[in-house]
């Protein structure tokens, strides 16, 4: 064990892991976090706390994680390169480790253009792969990016994202390999609706033996409405929603669509579970956290191993 991460423990034990996601509020309201954390507690092994997702200003990921931690959850702090240069990033890495947070997910970040401050200056001093590398060197070499040494290293279980659906497809496995080479311990993928394409990507991953060097959690999410499915298909960069998914949702009466969306999610979980090399799922039910227990249960993934305290 490299860290005290519950997620690492579950994965190392060879159990099929479940991570959830928690979006901090666009306000200073701590109750929102507590409420969501309560719902997720006991149903996931760790929960991602997003870092200004879609470039909208929200409560800082590390702060929301600290609040959520009081509810007994293991947290994965997401950290993007959009808003901080390497100095700020390393400072925050030290901070979250010192606060007892065990996991980090390194991301490049959604472009500022998409958020509520499109006029902001993007930083992108380093990219996600470089950030993974920086955090790994801090943990394993006790070194800052500049080469200076530190006394106490940040013990973080390091994650990175992978998108099997973005272009160019051929490069997607290579990019994963680079993230592993840079030091990623686990990978969470983009939300999967096109299971065939995901399976194809996993085949490429296995061909290179990458699944043995990193824990891959397949991203899944329930869809609430046909409109949401259409929006994701058309407007969310790097998202692959096959027409068959939209057709399936359209095929049920209107008041049944959200139920169908939950069923679809459970189906996808059972499909990806069959794929060799998938070590768990990352369930993203953003602003719909209350369905997480149901989905995890229906997928036969309960009970979760109890976390260490």
């Amino acid at each position: 064990m490299k860290t005290r991460s519950n997620l690492e423990r579950v994965l190392e034990a060879g159990q099929f892991a479940v991570t959830g996601e928690l979006g901090p509020p666009q306000s200073a309201d701590s109750q929102v976090i507590r409420r969501k954390a309560k719902i997720l507690g006991g149903h996931v092994d760790a929960v991602n706390v997003t870092d200004g997702q879609t470039a909208v200003v929200r409560m800082a990921s590390w702060a929301a994680s600290l609040i959520g931690k009081e509810e007994g959850l293991d947290h994965i702090v997401q950290m993007t390169c959009r808003d901080r240069n390497r100095i700020a990033l390393q400072m925050d890495v030290l901070g979250i480790a010192a606060l007892g947070i065990n996991n980090i997910l390194c991301l490049t970040g959604d472009h500022q253009k998409f958020g509520n401050h499109p006029m902001a200056r993007g930083v992108y001093d380093v990219d996600s792969i470089q950030l993974v590398n920086i955090v790994r060197d801090m943990r394993d070499e006790k070194k800052f990016q500049c080469g200076d040494e530190m006394a106490v290293e940040p013990c973080l279980f390091i994650g990175a994202a992978a998108n099997p659906f973005a272009d160019p497809f051929e490069f997607r496995v290579t990019r994963l390999a680079k993230k592993i080479a840079a030091g990623a311990d686990f990978i969470q993928t983009q939300i999967i609706y096109n299971v065939d394409k995901f399976a194809e990507w996993m085949e490429g991953v296995r061909d290179r033996g990458l699944h043995e060097r990193v824990k891959i959690l397949a991203g899944v999410a329930p869809i609430k409405s046909v409109g949401a499915a259409r929006y994701m298909k058309a407007r969310v960069p790097g998202m692959d929603v096959p027409d068959s998914v939209i057709a399936r949702l359209q095929g049920v009466p209107k008041d049944q669509v959200s139920r169908e969306g939950i069923k679809l999610c459970v189906d996808i979980i059972s499909q990806v579970r069959e794929i060799e090399g998938v070590a768990g799922i990352h369930l993203m039910a953003i602003e719909w956290e209350e369905v997480v227990p149901e989905i995890v249960g229906a997928a036969g993934l309960l009970p979760r191993p109890s976390p260490l305290t």
Partner: peptide, 9 residues
């Protein structure tokens, strides 16, 4: 004070 720069333009 001078307004923030608009980097989107």
């Amino acid at each position: 004070y001078v307004q923030l720069r608009d980097y989107s333009t």
